[in-house]
Nucleic acid binder design. Structure first.
Lengths: 213, 213
DNA sequence: TCTTCGAAACGAAACGGCCCGTTTCGTACA
DNA sequence: TGTACGAAACGGGCCGTTTCGTTTCGAAGA
């Protein structure tokens, strides 16, 4: 499912040049003028295209945004044989990808748009669900290696890590250094409880468990 | 620092009735029409107020939003003597607060507005910084009890937990059951690595450490 | 192979409508 | 008499749609 429900499909001959020019212009406008300056009229002016041409192929501003986003390269998930390295590497490349390309601006705009458009919210939810599944495979691989407990919900862990990335994107904090990322990932993988050595380990663990239950 | 920079302060006699009516109307419009239907004109119509009256006291739509949000009750942080219970209780009450009052809609709108208004972004950043400090006190208390390692960055942990809450707010997933919240908190507190018993513990740990370093 | 022709996409312009932020009124209250 | 107030109107921008004349392209026919 996508956002292009409204497109004509019978007898339609879309002009590839025009479509590309519109997508190029949309990306440029978004980067240069930001989300607040992103309007169909601005894209049409920039692309030297008519508004009806845009509306013919994209039923909404969000659909155009989504197509622009999907043209961009995605960040893949590393497989180093160690979960912490995988997660840190993933966050590092995701952050730099968001920082150094237009992906960050575009994805931020998509999230913002989803707050006022239920259709965008649904599409975004489906998209992120798929991304979380991909990220979850890193955890599943680690589970197969014995690095992760068998009863861990890998999708939930992926959700937790992606949440960290989302809020840092939304709050202009994509410049975290590797140490911070590594600490964050470490908290998820190893937890924040003290190592089970300095005080008697059984005490620590049983004490935690007792109060939790 | 706040968003009310533009307000007149010399010789101004603000009408409390009018200001309250405007804030009430803003909250009502936001809840009923959503973020997309939230406009100064709509608030003015609803409050039977003139637009200049709103602009006299609030320099921007975001400033009005922020004032509406700050009128609302905040969620406090529990102190049960156990970190996992504290964090789960915090998330539970935060989610239900966001779900059952207008706080959720308003905070979502603030985040969305911050994506197109740098001033809002700055104020929101400062606000969340303060909230993270509060949440971090839960971790600091646990640290004092020995539940958390001394070198753990409590602000970063608070950031991680709050990120989870933010994205669930932004993606309409405030209805997570307590089990999910407890699992998520457990991943942060205890980590996702398997208990150091079933396979030889030293192997597991040294193998992880070797590859990480 | 070349020409013709109609369908469909195109750019440009204009429409009514909504909201922006501001200005100008007359009014009510201290 | 000050000042805040409401109502109304301003120019401007963007929305999504409609109408216009033009261009492009593929299929039919010579």
């Amino acid at each position: 499912m996508g956002l292009d429900q409204g497109r004509r499909s019978i007898g339609a001959r879309r002009n590839p040049d025009s479509a590309d020019a519109i997508l190029d212009a949309a990306e440029a406008v978004l980067v240069e003028a930001g989300y607040s300056g992103f309007s169909i009229e601005a894209v049409a002016r920039r692309a030297r295209a008519g508004k009806p041409t845009i509306y013919r192929w994209w039923p909404s501003k969000a659909a155009l945004l989504f197509d622009v986003y999907q043209r961009l390269k995605r960040v893949d998930h590393p497989d180093t044989g160690n979960l912490e390295d995988d997660l840190v590497g993933f966050l590092k490349s995701l952050f730099s990808h968001w920082r150094e390309t237009s992906s960050g601006s575009i994805f931020r705009s998509l999230i913002a748009e989803a707050q006022s458009d239920a259709t965008v919210a649904a599409v975004l939810a489906e998209y992120t669900k798929g991304r979380h599944a991909h990220t979850g495979q890193m955890i599943e691989r680690a589970k197969a290696r014995g690095e992760v407990a068998a009863d861990v919900d890998s999708t939930l862990v992926a959700d937790l890590v992606a949440s960290f990335a989302w809020t840092h994107l939304l709050t202009n904090r994509l410049d975290e250094d590797e140490t911070t990322l590594r600490k964050t990932v470490g908290y998820v993988v190893k937890g924040i409880a003290p190592p089970a050595s300095s005080p008697p380990a059984i005490w620590q663990r049983s004490r935690r468990r007792r109060i939790v239950g």
